[in-house]
Amino acid sequence: MTMPPPPDVPGDQGMTPSKPGTVAPPLAPAKRSKALIVGAIAGVLALCLLGTCVVAVGALVATRMDDGRQPSAADGPPPVLVPTTPPSPSTEETYSPPEEDPTTEEAPPPPPAKIGQCIAVNEDGDFLGIGNCNGTSGTYRVVSLDYGQGECADPESGYITEDGYRLCLELHLVRNYCYKFPKNDGWIVAASKCKAKGTVHIIDIVPGASNGNRCTRDYRWNRWYRFTHPTVVYCVMQY
């Protein structure tokens, strides 16, 4: 609830005493105060047209307070000050990836074979191409390759170099197929004709064995060969 303003009480603040039966004229400062209020209202309307009502209303309230008069119900509801919202900073961010230094190294060529594939070689170990691992072509299987030609995982395993790659290999022979073994150092190749002189026919394969004791007794064989890297025994019929 808003209390009504107190009545004006005459005092000795520069007022001229009135005679009985007469009303003392209002003091000149009161006129100036009203003029200031009217002028302030006119200024507020002008400023509102310029979009600055908030600041003008605040000035009007301050003027009323300086006038010494408390607001009454006739003045209407107090002005509502609407805070202005400052523009929010832009949240859009730009990202510039760092520039990559140009490389002068050439990309390596595609490898001649992939890991797990079987390849064919001649008796000197020259690369003849990709074969298959079912015995018809290809006597060595690729276990690793390295364009930097570093050492194989097993330094004792055989390898060849082709197109700048070191291909680390393991022997891969298939039961019931014929091959030609070298007399000394050399590479095992597929036999051009099975049961020809100097060829061997694979009868049994025993991984991890150290001799022919575990070779099959169901089929005839006359010789066994043990290889390492990996360790395996081939039980063969040699012609």
Rank of each mutant, 00 (worst) to 15 (best):
Q117M: 06
V57L: 15
D154Y: 05
G39M: 07
D66I: 11
P77S: 03
T2W: 15
C118F: 02
R69N: 05
P155V: 11
A196G: 03
I188Q: 03
I203K: 05
V174P: 02
N132W: 01
V232P: 03
P182F: 08
S210P: 00
V82N: 01
K195A: 09
D163Q: 14
V189C: 00
T85K: 07
Q149S: 11
D66Q: 14
V232R: 01
K19F: 14
S210F: 02
E123Q: 12
P87S: 09
T22M: 13
L167K: 05
S96P: 00
T63N: 04
P111T: 10
G21D: 10
P102K: 12
R32L: 12
T161C: 04
M15N: 12
W221E: 05
R166N: 14
H201M: 00
E99S: 09
S192N: 10
I115Q: 08
R217A: 13
A209P: 02
S157I: 05
L45Y: 13
N122L: 05
Q149F: 03
G43N: 14
P83R: 06
N211F: 08
P29M: 03
T84A: 13
S157H: 08
A107V: 15
G14D: 11
P102C: 11
K193R: 06
P102A: 15
I203A: 03
R141K: 15
A62V: 09
R166I: 11
D67S: 15
L36E: 11
R175Q: 12
G164M: 13
E106C: 08
Y225L: 07
M237H: 00
A30S: 01
C178F: 00
P207A: 01
Q149C: 08
P89H: 04
L50E: 13
L36F: 05
C118V: 03
C178S: 04
F227M: 07
P97Q: 10
Y140W: 12
T216I: 07
G150I: 00
M1W: 12
P110D: 14
T91N: 04
D66M: 11
E93T: 15
V121W: 01
S88L: 09
K34W: 08
V23M: 14
S90R: 03
Y177F: 02
I202V: 10
G212K: 04
D126S: 11
P112H: 09
P83S: 08
T85G: 02
C53N: 06
A120E: 15
K34T: 04
P98V: 11
G164Y: 09
A190W: 03
S137W: 03
K180R: 11
I119F: 12
R214D: 13
P5V: 13
G131P: 06
V55F: 10
P6A: 14
G150E: 03
I202C: 01
S210D: 04
G116N: 02
N222S: 10
E170K: 10
D154G: 01
D163M: 09
A74D: 13
